[in-house]
Design a protein around this nucleic acid. Structure first.
Lengths: 358, 358
DNA sequence: TTGTAGGCGTTATCAC
DNA sequence: GTGATAACGCCTACAA
């Protein structure tokens, strides 16, 4: 390239980095040659020389998880605004992958990482974080890690969701969380217990489950609650996706939501309002997580931030249509079950009971 | 690092690349030193030396778009299986960003790119593709680009969706697509027209709109159709997200889906079955797009593939509950509108008409 | 089995 | 204003 322009590499480098104003004639020669060869500065060599990559990473367990992809989208926008590239890394919830991704800092692939994990107790992850530095924890904790953190107000969210169900008249309210070791799960439950307590309702361990944060976990939870002698009339699911699973399973079992069973979710994922029924939920802004997360990380890189920082994303209750007063007879089985449970129903069959459709 | 192990860099390099079997004693020294220093090979330097990055890129317009994030998730898995990293790049549907991302090949940041675009006519994008090479086009075309392509059977999908509505007795069926220049949009419409034709139904241009592929475009489309003197009794939306927008708008207008209006989507996005009502749609497997896309790209990199290759992802009709026979009186306004249209309804208000909830 | 040296493309330093 | 040169950290002949 430099040869083609009959110039030294130095001149070319300077030109592309606007280090100095070159005479028009020189610029023209460079531009012509670059255009001719389709020349692009080699980012890899640049990184090696500079020791910085101008790019940040986002580690998450599954990019197809709606709340996470919303965060990724927001984070990417903010990165672009600040002149960074954002690389998105899927960990598939495997600790080894998470560590491998974190090491991309040490291998100079990215300058810093926004890290979301479901392994709060992993000592190996904590060590990697402390060694690699330049990491911001999003959404979940890693116990002994020294890094800035950005959390949702989980406890408040738990209180809001539960109070909403209490206000509708429910007394038997279940809580379905992710793994108990996750702060999102335990803090939301703490809020749930507090709200219950304030109404003088005894805590019933049979109504609290921690199956996970996937739709299928919601389905499993429904099955478990369905086996109870005295099932709940309402459920607080600690993730919207779990609420979707609950709704799906409830429909299959012939229950109507919210008539037979009220549900509140958490996250406010995109299109939660067009669920059947539109899902009442606790919104935590994915936008804020993404944007503020990037800002914290850049601040950390700039040395403007200490590693003790903890910030919170506020939450709010979004009331839609998945909550109604409890039926007089509390037991699900006394509710109007219009369609029998059909494991693996034929594709042509509607999955909602006919009665709901007019 | 090499110094710490009292060995040459050569030995270390060989060890980490399994180039040769070293004596146990040497290995032990290296491992000990590496462990001690938290040593990680610098990927950047490795790339510079090797001239390859072992990583692929995926360019898409919005990672929060459910169908795309499902593709991204599948592509990432396949990449991992094949020993590649996947970097996901958001273009926000801006041609300039797409070009910048494509250039990451020329700047040696990635070895190749899976490219999804909404700018089929951009000569600049086509030029960039032809110069950069090692690109596979996914889902949409770029006219003059020389690159392997992976498309859905869009035409077939259009036929399936439309036939399904015809079979339910509909005669006035609308088509809502993305930009007309997109093959996904035009081919699905071609299928729609063909199916209509086969039933001897005249094509009515008033029933065909191309507002875009976002939920908000569906809402706009509903408003436009609602203004018609003789509105359709059914709608085929060329994307599930658009169908969601239609459902949302229809609800606000007091119409029930499918009683007053039948809808079929396209994509089969995650959780489409838990929409209110569960969405009938044409499934195109995001999994296949992601996995097969990566395989094609790797094949291209290996020189096992010519740039003329075009492959197709099959589609299938998924029947759920968003389609019903048309009402006897075809006009929406004669249908039972139970709730008036409320622009910006108060948050507490249910967005479904009361009549639907019992 | 182990080490030495040159090169990958860029940037920064220091001459000219 | 411009250019030569030494890093950056790794890999791979080639040599010992």
């Amino acid at each position: 390239m430099a040869a083609a322009a009959q110039l030294s590499v130095t001149a070319v480098s300077r030109h592309f980095n606007n280090r100095i104003v070159l005479p028009a004639e020189t610029v023209a020669r460079i531009e012509a040659a670059a255009n001719d060869l389709g020349y692009r500065a080699n980012v890899t060599a640049r990184r090696l020389s500079l020791g910085s990559s101008e790019s940040l990473g986002l580690v998450l367990s599954d990019i197809a998880y709606p709340f996470f992809s919303a965060i990724a989208s927001a984070a990417e926008s903010e990165c672009a605004r600040l002149g960074y590239s954002l690389l998105i890394f899927n960990s598939r919830n495997i600790a080894g992958n998470e560590i491998a991704h974190l090491r991309r800092i040490e291998s100079a692939q990215v300058d810093g990482i926004l890290f979301m994990t479901n392994h709060p107790g992993s000592a190996e992850i904590a060590e990697t974080i402390n060694r690699a530095r330049n990491i911001v924890l999003l959404d979940e904790d890693v116990r002994t890690a020294e890094a800035p953190r950005l959390y949702a107000r989980n406890h408040k969210g738990g209180v809001l969701a539960t109070r909403h169900l209490l206000a509708a008249g429910h007394r038997r309210i279940a809580y379905i969380g992710g793994d108990q070791s996750l702060i999102s799960s335990s803090e939301r439950m703490a809020g749930y217990r507090e709200a219950l307590n304030a109404e003088g309702i005894d805590f019933d361990p049979a109504l609290v489950l921690f199956p996970g944060y996937q739709a299928i976990d919601g389905e499993a939870a429904f099955a478990a609650l369905d086996r109870l002698k005295n099932p709940p009339t309402a459920i607080f699911a600690a993730a919207d996706v779990v609420a979707l699973g609950l709704i799906r399973a409830a429909r299959r079992a012939g229950l109507s939501v919210p008539q037979d069973l009220s549900i509140v979710g958490f996250d406010d994922i995109p299109n939660a309002d067009v669920i059947g029924p539109p899902l009442s939920t606790v919104r935590q802004s994915a936008e804020t997580f993404g944007v503020r997360g990037v800002q914290l990380l850049v601040g950390l890189l700039m040395g403007e931030l200490t590693e003790e920082v903890v910030e919170y994303v506020d939450v709010e209750l979004i009331e839609r249509s998945s909550v109604a007063p409890p039926r007089l007879r509390h037991h699900w089985r006394t509710a109007s079950r219009k369609a029998p449970s059909e494991p693996k129903a034929a594709p042509k069959t509607n999955q909602i009971p006919k009665g709901k459709r007019q």
